[in-house]
Design a protein around this nucleic acid. Structure first.
Length: 758
DNA sequence: AGCACGCCGACT
DNA sequence: GTCGGCGTGCTC
């Protein structure tokens, strides 16, 4: 009998599939089952991917040690999806699998759900409790067990709780374990284990303030048309992609909800992806409100235990609606019939470490494998998505009007060059914004102030010698933060931090100056201009603590703050009806970057943030400060004119040969020295170009060149790009080159469809 | 990623 | 003399 060989994916990023033998005594595990395998000196848990052929002669095969699952732990369609992700994004199967698994499924065999000890009375316990209650008045006609006062009290409490009391409730009643155990010994109480799933909505890690208003439930004619089109697509029960392009405030969420309800009633599952739960609480809350406990939630803000519980609820088939962030695309939801990607243009769908997948694109593939309808929704679709709609790969559905006929915000552009000429070079808030802010404070209306740059000052430089304070590990200057009475300089890439010195380290001159400004400075500026204003700030620094973002947004939502200053975090899908003013401090942050998506990002950010104003009964106003008032991304965002922006931008992408017109792959090679990184990148690039295969399409290689961050966390980096019309050919060439140069491959990271070339 | 082996500085 | 720093190499 030939040995049974299986291919196992192990959670080790650098490794490919490994082949193991199934020993005589064990059955052949099914694909998707977890198995415990020896690896080197370690023992770890992997997942069976399928049968394997005899590998090359030089490897000695080992036996698997244990089979953890009789049936597939990962269902076949999820396994298929992870295989696609590994292949498309050139990531190891182990790394991809780790992304698809619930926490602890591979590291720890102890189930992480919480087993609750529940104490209940036995039949006899009830009897005794009843007799005890009347005991003092009646003669002790029957022998009562000898009970202490505490025991009698506990019996009474338990009698009032037929469902039992868990340990938390026992503690709340001041009942000690000793009393319970004595009752148990007497046979009056039982203790049973009950599996209880943690509810992330209740625990606070996803505590949401519902803002969905009933008024929005009545669909506008436009929403009804959109819903009808989507309904027909869903009923076809085959793979299709719809791009729902609806202006901010046009009521996309309500369309998703009604569609989801219908798909669910037809017996199929619904998967809803959102960029970040904490930033789009309204959508999650609306789903929870509509579908109740039939909704599972998945995102990185949950504790491991919560995520684990939710994953198993889905796996058991207890829920048919799942809402979550990008990794939720891998959840084991049975029979998905609808996959919605809300705010599909959002860059947080892209995972920035291996596997570098794009949640939206994986969602489209999952829909393809499942024969489901995929709905991509946005007010500012990604160039890729609109391009696909224009080329008939996606069906475009458009919502052009806001619900309840609310007007779009009135947008004004302030030319900061003129403002500086009149007010001096240090002006942060223009006169127009100061006046508008003042008016809102008087009227008790709210204001959002956006500056997409954190910290107090962008850098410190010496007025005598021009030196800046740079990060010792990365090729950037340190950003200044205020830390109580001190000034700290911190690296935004590696978190290196130091106090800002009194004198220049280079020339010893005491003329160190802070240059540029960020959100902390804006917050301070507003506080000094309007001493009575209640100001909050939301950026990565202020919300480091878990739950603090939700807390800050909820405070603002409840009206406990007048002004919220923040980075792009505040521009996402919030619905704050009392906001009537949005100020953008430097709209051109990012336009100066040499990134081919700079204009797209700026347009999206400005359109989205302007859309935050005027979502209630009052008219909204947006004031946009910029040094480039004539730049098309700014003028067209002010006009809320997506089609014209797309037309202009796609022309540029054609001319410059950039995505979505062509495909790109970025390869970064790290090295101990600059020379080593460049050499590695050059070798890899030349092997890649040697594997060009004209029958798979042509591509060009740009570089190698130093990466934009030449040094990051102490490592030097060099990069090259592939540009071409066929991803298959490009991926093939890179894959072969990596295989030929394994020692360089270990220091290389590959980004297929990079979102940023910076 | 771990976990080994392996070759050079400050200590009982 | 060795305890331990992390550089390099391997894992079916």
């Amino acid at each position: 009998v030939a040995a049974r060989l299986i291919a196992v994916a192990v959670p080790v990023p650098a490794l490919d599939l490994l082949t193991y033998r199934v020993p005589e005594l064990l059955p052949t595990p099914v694909a998707g089952a977890r198995v415990v395998v020896p690896l080197g000196k370690r023992t770890l848990t992997g997942v069976v991917v399928g049968e394997a052929d005899q590998p090359a002669a030089d490897v000695t095969l080992k036996d698997i040690l244990r089979i953890l699952d009789e049936t597939a732990f990962l269902p076949a369609d999820v396994l298929q999806l992870t295989e696609w992700v590994s292949d498309y994004y050139l990531a190891g199967p182990g790394a991809t699998l780790a992304a698809a698994m619930p926490p602890h499924a591979l590291t720890n065999r102890v189930d992480a759900f919480r087993n609750v000890r529940l104490v209940t009375l036995t039949a006899e316990g009830h009897d005794v409790a009843a007799r005890t209650a009347i005991g003092p008045r009646c003669a002790p006609d029957a022998a009562l067990p000898h009970l202490g006062t505490r025991q009698r009290e506990v019996l009474a409490i338990l009698q009032g709780s037929p469902d039992g009391l868990d340990s938390a409730a026992l503690t709340a009643h001041g009942i000690s374990a000793a009393v319970v155990s004595r009752l148990k010994v007497m046979g009056l109480a039982t203790i049973r284990q009950e599996r209880r799933d943690r509810d992330p909505f209740a625990s606070g890690s996803a505590a949401l303030t519902p803002t969905a208003r009933d008024l929005d439930r009545v669909l506008t004619p436009e929403q009804q048309d959109a819903l009808q089109q989507l309904r027909l697509m869903a009923q076809a029960r085959r793979f299709q992609v719809a791009l729902l392009h609806g202006v901010t405030g046009s009521g996309k969420t309500e369309v998703y909800l009604q569609l989801a309800e219908e798909v669910r009633n037809a017996g199929r599952g619904v998967l809803m992806l959102v960029p970040e739960i904490a930033l789009t609480p309204a959508v999650a809350a609306a789903f929870r409100q509509r579908f109740g406990s039939g909704v599972a939630i998945q995102h990185s803000g949950l504790s491991d235990g919560e995520r684990h519980d939710q994953w198993h609820r889905i796996r058991r088939g207890d829920v048919d609606v799942v809402i979550g962030t990008r990794s939720a695309i891998f959840v084991p939801l049975a029979k998905p019939g609808l996959i919605v990607v809300d705010e599909e243009h959002d860059t947080s769908y892209k995972q920035e470490d291996t596997p570098r997948y794009h949640g939206r694109d994986v969602a489209v593939m999952r829909g393809k494998f499942a024969g489901a309808l995929v709905v991509l929704g946005s007010a500012t679709p990604a160039m890729e998505s609109f391009y696909n709609a224009r080329h008939d790969r996606y069906t475009a559905i458009t919502l052009t009007r806001r619900v309840l006929d609310r007007a779009m915000a009135d947008v004004r552009v302030v030319d900061m060059r003129e403002e500086m000429a009149e007010e001096g070079p240090d002006v942060i808030l223009s006169r127009a914004l100061r006046e508008a802010l003042h008016a809102r404070l008087e009227k008790k209306e709210q204001t959002l102030v956006l500056l997409n740059r954190r910290g107090y000052a962008a850098a410190v430089f010496c007025r005598q010698c021009g030196a800046t304070i740079d990060c010792p590990n990365c090729s950037v200057s340190l950003t200044v933060h205020r830390a109580g009475p001190n000034w700290r300089a911190r690296c935004h890439y590696c978190n290196f931090a130091r106090l800002v010195p009194q004198t220049c380290a280079n020339c010893a001159a005491p003329y160190l100056e802070r240059v540029g400004f960020g959100t902390e400075r804006v917050e301070a500026e507003i506080a000094s201009l309007f001493p009575g204003a209640r100001i909050g700030r939301v950026d990565r620094d202020s919300v480091r603590r878990r739950g603090s973002l939700t807390e800050a947004l909820n405070r603002f939502g409840r009206g406990e703050l007048d002004v919220l200053v923040g980075t792009q975090m505040i521009a996402k899908g919030h619905d704050f009806p009392k906001v009537t003013l949005v100020g953008v401090i430097s709209a051109d942050v990012g336009l100066g970057l040499a990134d081919f998506r700079a204009a797209e990002r700026t347009f999206q950010l400005l359109t989205q943030v302007a859309g935050r104003a005027g979502r209630g009964v009052h008219l909204g106003e947006a004031i946009i400060q910029t040094l480039f008032p004539e730049h098309y991304s700014i003028t067209l965002a002010c006009a809320q004119d997506y089609p014209t922006f797309y037309a202009k931008e796609i022309e540029y992408r054609h001319a410059m040969r950039y995505p979505p017109v062509i495909a790109m792959i970025n390869v970064v090679v790290r090295g101990r020295t600059y020379e080593a990184a460049m050499q590695g990148a050059a070798d890899l690039a030349s092997r890649t170009s040697a594997h060009a295969n004209p029958s798979l399409g042509r591509f060009v290689i740009l570089g190698p060149a130093p990466a934009p961050l030449t040094k990051l966390r102490g490592e030097h980096r060099a990069q090259f790009f592939l540009k071409g019309t066929s991803r298959a050919g490009m991926r093939h060439a890179v894959r072969e080159a990596l295989k030929e140069l394994p020692e360089i491959a270990r220091k290389a990271s590959v980004d297929v469809d990079p979102l940023s070339v910076l």
